Simulated scan of single mutants.
Amino acid sequence: MSWSALDAGILGPALIAGLLVLATHVPLGMQVLDRGIVFIDLAIAQIAGLGVIAGDAVGLPEGGVAVQAAAVTAALLGAWLLTWTERRAPQQQEALIGVMFILAACAGILLLASNPHGGEHLKDLLVGQILWVNRTQLLWLGGISVVLLLAMRLGWIERLGRFGFYAAFALAVTASVQLVGVYLVFSSLIIPALGTRAHGGARRLRIAYAVGALGYALGLALSALFDLPSGAVIVWTLAACAFAGALLIRPRLERATTRSA
């Protein structure tokens, strides 16, 4: 363990990236749980990742605007398809989301089969490279986050119905998956929202944001101190913070219920 590894120049931008991801993913994750379509984030993230892989396969500059456009296009197509399947087969929607995820994952593996660095690309897609985020990526993520938060605040997404929700989801995931990876996208969406289900309204949102921020901060610090992969450590610290928060808050809720009875 080396305390000198806690370098603000590296961990600071990574933490900002995590907070920007949480800004949109926490409220969207709450909607996902309410709708009962938990695995939509994995499916859309994998489809966006497939767009990145496809862009690389045809020779587009890595990390450039064209690759971003490929990822957004793929995610929006996935959002349109999910809108169509929800309308046609609502009872099978969760199963269809799972099928879309596995098809996109396998398509990515097939596209990377002839790439000598395919394994490395696949690992980056799953666990991300949050420690190496740069200013351009932060500005891109920040811009998308502001637009999506404004759209949610003003009710624009609800006015577009099913497709509005899926499209917003696609844009949020596309902006974050290349920075933090598929696993952290899923964790940022589901874990803070799941750990605060006992609450409601603005209180739940505040607690979920606090859980997420603490999880990212602890995960980054521990990964630096023990020289471990950041994405995997953050997933575990997010889960630990959500679990601890739920245990600490539950007795208060039980006491309040007892008094009211």
Results as ranks from 00 to 15, higher is better:
Arg206Met: 15
Ala175Tyr: 03
Leu218Asp: 04
Leu194Ile: 02
Ile207Glu: 12
Gly212Gln: 05
Arg153Ser: 09
Leu184Pro: 03
His199Leu: 15
Gln178Asn: 13
Leu160Ser: 11
Tyr209Asn: 01
Gly143Glu: 11
Phe226His: 09
Leu225Phe: 08
Ile191Ser: 01
Tyr183Ile: 07
Ile191Arg: 05
Arg204Leu: 00
Trp140Thr: 14
Ser176Met: 11
Ser176Asn: 13
Gly195Phe: 10
Gly212Pro: 03
Ala170Met: 07
Gly155Gln: 07
His199Ile: 11
Phe165Trp: 12
Leu150Thr: 10
Ala208Phe: 04
Gln137Asn: 12
Arg197Ala: 13
Trp156Gln: 10
Val185Leu: 07
Val147Tyr: 04
Arg159Val: 06
Glu158Pro: 01
Val146Met: 13
Gln137Trp: 01
Trp132Tyr: 15
Pro192Ser: 05
Ala221Asp: 10
Leu220His: 00
Trp156Leu: 11
Arg159Tyr: 08
Trp132Ile: 13
Ser176Gly: 12
Leu194Pro: 00
Leu171Trp: 07
Asp227Lys: 14
Gly142Tyr: 02
Leu222Thr: 07
Arg159Thr: 07
Ile144Gly: 09
Arg206Phe: 13
Gly195Glu: 01
Gly215His: 10
Leu194Asp: 01
Val173Leu: 04
Ala198Glu: 14
Gly201Glu: 10
Val173Gly: 11
Trp140Gly: 12
Ser188Glu: 02
Val211Lys: 08
Leu150His: 07
Phe186Ile: 01
Leu138Glu: 02
Arg135Met: 12
Phe165Leu: 06
Asp227Glu: 13
Leu150Asn: 09
Ala210Pro: 08
Ser223Met: 07
Leu218Arg: 04
Ser145Asp: 00
Trp156Met: 05
Gly143Gln: 08
Ile144Ser: 12
Leu184Ala: 03
Gly161Ala: 04
Arg204Glu: 03
Ala198Tyr: 09
Ser176Tyr: 03
Leu218Cys: 14
Ser176Val: 13
Ala170Lys: 01
Val147Met: 11
Ala175Val: 02
Ile190Gly: 09
Leu179Ser: 02
Arg153Glu: 04
Val133Trp: 06
Ala170Asn: 07
Leu141Phe: 07
Ala172Arg: 05
Leu141Val: 11
Leu141Lys: 08
Leu141Asn: 02
Val177Ile: 06
Ala217Gly: 05
Arg162Val: 13
Gly161Phe: 07
Leu141Arg: 09
Arg153Met: 10
Trp132Val: 14
Val185Asn: 06
Gly200Arg: 15
Val185Ile: 00
Ile144Met: 14
His199Asn: 14
Leu225Gly: 05
Ala172Ile: 12
Leu205Tyr: 10
Trp156Ile: 06
Ile190Pro: 05
Met152Leu: 15
Val211Leu: 15
Leu139Gln: 14
Gly212Arg: 08
Leu171Gln: 02
Gly195Pro: 09
Ala202His: 14
Leu222Gly: 00
Val133Lys: 08
Met152Tyr: 11
Asn134Lys: 09
Arg206Gly: 15
Ser145Glu: 10
Leu171Ser: 10
Val211Tyr: 04
Leu214Val: 12
Leu150Lys: 12
Val182Leu: 15
Tyr216Val: 15
Ala175Gln: 00
Ala193Tyr: 01
Tyr209Ala: 05
Thr136His: 14
